[in-house]
Design a protein around this nucleic acid. Structure first.
Lengths: 203, 203
DNA sequence: CCGATCACCTAACAAGCGTTAGCCGAGGTG
DNA sequence: CACCTCGGCTAACGCTTGTTAGGTGATCGG
């Protein structure tokens, strides 16, 4: 996946999906404008013009990256939730969701750290579609918290929406420092869930 | 500060500091590569070449923006802390610090959202200096939390460092959604502090 | 064996980038 | 009045950007 793949086999076989993965890395590390066709190509071991065989434009790649990232992330989180035992308590479901989210955001989901910054740069109608994906994601967490409230596990307050924003922010920002080789996403999820549920104050 | 200032008075009088403020906005919204000299100039109502009267290069502006942002932010947070009554309890100091930090990060401090992304793009030795500023910031919060622990206000755990990362992330990410015209930074600080201190779980 | 298709290539384009050189009018100072 | 500095200006440079046109060799179905 690194470079010079055509030296061994004559077919370079740089798949379209590999290009997405490379692009996702670059977006995360260099931003939208810093993610150039030539840099993507270089990472893939091909030339910039060759990318146009796979994708029609830079914007199409970006679009695919954002879409795939957030869709796949949500899918994995939902799947993790579905695999939990039937009557699992809120605390457990909450922690599992955080773990799955941290994992996807950081390994595969290095993809879709689609910040306002990125949304400001991509074409408007493309941005609009992605903005809606983000609303879906937010709704997932809102629903989860709502279940917790109905179970009586967590306190509801008028500021619940704000608290959710802070919590999601904490998880999203983790891409800035997370190193999965030191702590697994599940270990980190324990810490985050404990922080969000109990706080740091002594009882 | 917007544009066409030379129409009224003959002197355009676009101060160096105004350029920093404009650049800070652009960095936040467009990233490093997206922040072009021509765009900075356009926002300032002057031409790109004129910027070189104030600053030697694009990198010098970026440097100044990052430096000024984080230094001023820390200064304001520390000042806010200093203005608290002498024996203020940890809870109050914690909330005040969060409020000051949220305010500077979002209004003036729109400046220094210097993410790993930005640090990857600016020249290495400039990045190194800024990385150290970030360490200072982290230490401030570590010290604050340590005081709280010694007061017995908060629980210490081996994962305190991780919890701190999550908390700071929550505050930093707020630039993505915060709208100070809806809620003041102090109101938001109440929510964040309550979340961090008590969590959302019912007692 | 032959054409087609695939997956890449080279070369070039216009536009935009940071930056430099040199110019100009307004305002203050001798 | 002459002079100088200030804060801008225009024009251009070499380079990089996204993108297009057209070519090339390997693989494969008939």
């Amino acid at each position: 996946m690194a470079s010079h793949m055509q030296s061994q086999e004559s077919r370079a076989e740089c798949s379209s999906i590999a290009l997405l993965e490379i692009t996702a890395q670059l977006i995360r590390d260099q931003g939208y404008a810093g993610t150039t066709m030539r840099r993507i190509a270089e990472q893939a071991g091909i030339k910039a013009a060759s990318i146009y065989y796979h994708y029609a434009s830079k914007d199409e790649i970006i679009d695919r990256v954002l879409d795939r990232g957030i869709v796949e992330s949500m899918a994995r989180v939902r799947q993790t939730m579905a695999e939990l035992p039937a009557g699992a308590p809120f605390c457990e479901r909450f922690t599992a969701a955080i773990g799955a989210y941290l994992a996807t955001v950081n390994q595969l989901g290095t993809y879709f750290i689609a910040t306002r910054q990125l949304l400001n740069q991509i074409p408007p109608e493309l941005a609009e579609r992605h903005r809606q994906r983000r609303v879906e994601l937010d709704r997932f967490w809102a629903d989860l918290l709502d279940e917790g409230y109905r179970e009586g596990a967590i306190a509801e307050s008028g500021t619940n929406g704000l608290a959710r924003l802070f919590m999601l922010g904490a998880l999203n920002w983790s891409t800035e420092w997370m190193d999965l080789s030191r702590k697994s996403s599940d270990e980190l999820a324990e810490v985050a869930a404990s922080l969000f549920l109990n706080g740091i104050e002594t009882r």
